[in-house]
Computed example of a mutant assay.
Amino acid sequence: MRLLIDRRRWLTLGAGVLCHAAWAAPLPPRIASPALTQSDFVRNGLQLHFIPAAQAFAQSTAALRDQLATGCNLQPVRNAWRTAMLDWERLSAVSVGPLLERRSARTLDFWPTRPAMVSAAVQAPPADAAGLEQLGAPAKGLPALEWLLWQRAPDAAQCAYAALLAEACAVEAQSILADFQALARQNWTPETALSVFHEWFSQAVGGFEQLRWKKMGKPARSGRASDWPRATSGNTRAAWQAAWGGLQHFLVGTGRAQEQGSLNGYLAGDNQLDLSAQLESAVAQLQTRLQAADPARSTTVTTAMQALAKTKQLMEDKIAPELKTMVGFSESDGD
């Protein structure tokens, strides 16, 4: 059965990156928690987290494609790109399932941008979006689109190439959504859910490291303003907060009624109430730190990185052993 969730509802429940996030206020005291198996966790995680996020991204990339199909009206097109980028940050914060199998991060988000490769592709573009498969990853995806759309006055060739890139992003987003929906239709047994449970936990830990180091620490160390993620469009802080929103939603959901698809819901259902309380406290602190993080103020970035590292350590050193899982990494974890 295909699950349809309104995009606005997902944005409200998910990250709230442009307004108050779900964790702006503490969760109410816990009264009772339903017991959850790993099969329950996988089913609920797909229905409450991954499918809504994939639906939002599919819708926003389709809107970006449609905007560019009518030409480079810069303000609407830039707004559409920003929405799609933030949806991608939320979806890919915990990069699992189709995102790994399809290597979607390489297809959609090769970063840092390589302007020379984008310019070369503009001068000799493929005939259609399918032809983009013959080009290297640095000439495609959301960062390449960002570089093109934030030119002072994109010319006709740049706009035409941007339209091809947007079409390819929309196709990939639809494929990601279809694959997540196919996963949701599977009959999840304890055996089949076990490996997925381990993968999701590891990738959530990897998501913390992606945000802490690749998107914050490494650019800060370089000292070059252009190295910050989404710097060309001035959306670095919004991108950080969206990525955190995706992690946050996976960790704690949006409250007691919607936590069955979250790690915190699984902990509480497993009667790991002390760990659940520690996770809730860490998430609340991270919410404050990530909201304050600003590339222009190095101390705020350092503080956010420290909070990310602390929560990552909680997951690795305390939660993982109790859940009898191990942390591994994939090629999407970055350097």
Rank of each mutant, 00 (worst) to 15 (best):
R2M: 11
I5H: 10
L13P: 00
A15S: 15
G16V: 04
C19E: 15
P29I: 07
I31Y: 11
T37Q: 05
A53R: 09
A54K: 01
Q59H: 15
T61Y: 00
T70M: 10
T70V: 11
G71Y: 01
C72H: 02
N79A: 15
T83W: 02
A84P: 06
D87N: 12
W88I: 11
S95I: 00
P98F: 10
P98I: 06
L100D: 03
R102Y: 09
R102Q: 14
R102S: 10
S104Q: 05
A105D: 14
R114S: 10
S119E: 15
A120C: 06
V122L: 05
P126S: 08
D128Q: 07
G136V: 02
G136P: 02
L142I: 12
A144L: 02
W150E: 11
A153G: 01
Q158D: 06
A160R: 13
Y161I: 03
E172M: 07
I176W: 04
A184W: 02
W188S: 07
T189D: 07
T189P: 03
L194C: 09
V205C: 07
K214L: 14
K215V: 04
G217N: 07
K218E: 11
P219H: 04
R221W: 06
G223D: 00
A231M: 03
A231E: 14
N235G: 10
N235Y: 09
R237K: 14
R237S: 15
W240V: 01
Q241A: 01
L247M: 08
H249F: 15
V252K: 01
E259S: 11
S262T: 07
N264S: 15
G269E: 12
Q272M: 09
D274G: 06
E280N: 14
E280K: 08
R289P: 00
P295W: 01
A296Q: 14
R297G: 03
T299Y: 13
V301W: 08
V301N: 05
A304Q: 01
Q306H: 12
Q306W: 00
A307Y: 03
A309I: 00
D317K: 11
K318P: 07
I319M: 12
L323Y: 08
M326E: 14
